[in-house]
Design a protein around this nucleic acid. Sequence first.
DNA 1: GCTTGTGAAACGTTTCACAGCA
DNA 2: TGCTGTGAAACGTTTCACAAGC
Lengths: 235, 235
Amino acid sequence: MPADETPDQVPASLPPPANRAESVPEPAVRRLSLYLRELEALLAAGRETISSKQLGEVLGLTDAQVRKDLAYFGQFGHPGIGYRVDELIARLRSILGTDRTWNVLVVGAGHLGSALLNYRGFGKKGFQVVAVFDNDPAKIGSRVGPEPGFEIYPLERMAEVVAQSDIQIGVLAVPAAVAQATANALVAAGVKAILNFAPASLNVPENVPVATVDLAVHLEQLAFRVSADQVDASK
Amino acid sequence: MPADETPDQVPASLPPPANRAESVPEPAVRRLSLYLRELEALLAAGRETISSKQLGEVLGLTDAQVRKDLAYFGQFGHPGIGYRVDELIARLRSILGTDRTWNVLVVGAGHLGSALLNYRGFGKKGFQVVAVFDNDPAKIGSRVGPEPGFEIYPLERMAEVVAQSDIQIGVLAVPAAVAQATANALVAAGVKAILNFAPASLNVPENVPVATVDLAVHLEQLAFRVSADQVDASK
DNA sequence: GCTTGTGAAACGTTTCACAGCA
DNA sequence: TGCTGTGAAACGTTTCACAAGC
């Protein structure tokens, strides 16, 4: 950013700097969420400012990386001071899009689906589960989750409920064998993004982002690293 | 890897090619798990061979990337044919270290911990939950998980059980507020790696690998991408 | 003093393109 | 022909190092 007559103070409204995803490295976007999580913990602890060095330290990153990541989206820091915790939280939420509430549905009212419903903590992050679906006739109509619970709907009602409740994100908590078919149903129903807990890769239109969380994959990565360590230790 | 008088059939013992983690890109190791998952699905479907192009396609990768990733660990392919599915599965399991069983403990017998215990599917992947811990006195001694269930132990017994049952991996399913303290207890008990479901970064010795799965982080990434898409669409 | 923001250099990863082989 | 394995080129990300500001 050369001679661009940079304004001295932070402008009142958000995006004079590019808020565009364009040309921002994907790893940087992933770290934004980690910064936000850490900053929220700092805010709760009463911390008012933090430097890129300190923020990087708790996350195992360099100070330069923290600054670069944030600089992709604007100038949020104060030289000599660091970053104001509350200000940076607001900026990150705005960038990530979690300064508003996202309505979420869960498909699959099994063990994992129920656990997700019982997890408080999404709410604070801007995500609200508003409906639950399952294809098991024995479950339809019964209730799951914290009192008063959610009524379990059949998959057939998905499109209707998505439109009515303005649902943007679908959480897939179904067996791998039906994951693709269920993903198709989510897309057809108008869901804009999918968080997939089934151990399967999904084929969806490219404008529908998918995040797959496969517990076995994570365990395998740990196994690999422990095995490698043991080889290293024996040298 | 030039004139290395490559044997035609799989050698009886494992590592003529380097099994070392050294100099293998981390992203490549992550993809190994995805290849394995896909290959296991292919095997179940009766598929006998697959080319790097076909394997890449289902995962959204190029053929060259698939070949390069695998070539870091040896020459597993057959020119003109592709890769034999059963053979490559065996190789990947050996590389990842999941050709043996890993004993796993779960800390936190809440909603998520219980859901994990009820999840069949780890077993096939080489991971076996063998013990459950919680610090809630009301839960100690009761049983959770599929019949006959696991007796819930107090955290104090962790070191003893880890040694006795040869546990290598600990799964952290506790609230963020006690995640660090619980991680410390896991490390002190001799656990070699941690799968962390608490939304918090953990500070552990660097020889203890940690994989953190934070659902809110994944949802935020989806929110970001959906927001970016909407900006794109309006141009 | 300390800290940010940022070009440029260093490093790492992916893709290309082709020799070699079935 | 079809496919792997692999150097080399292209591309992307991180780190360095420093001018500018508090």
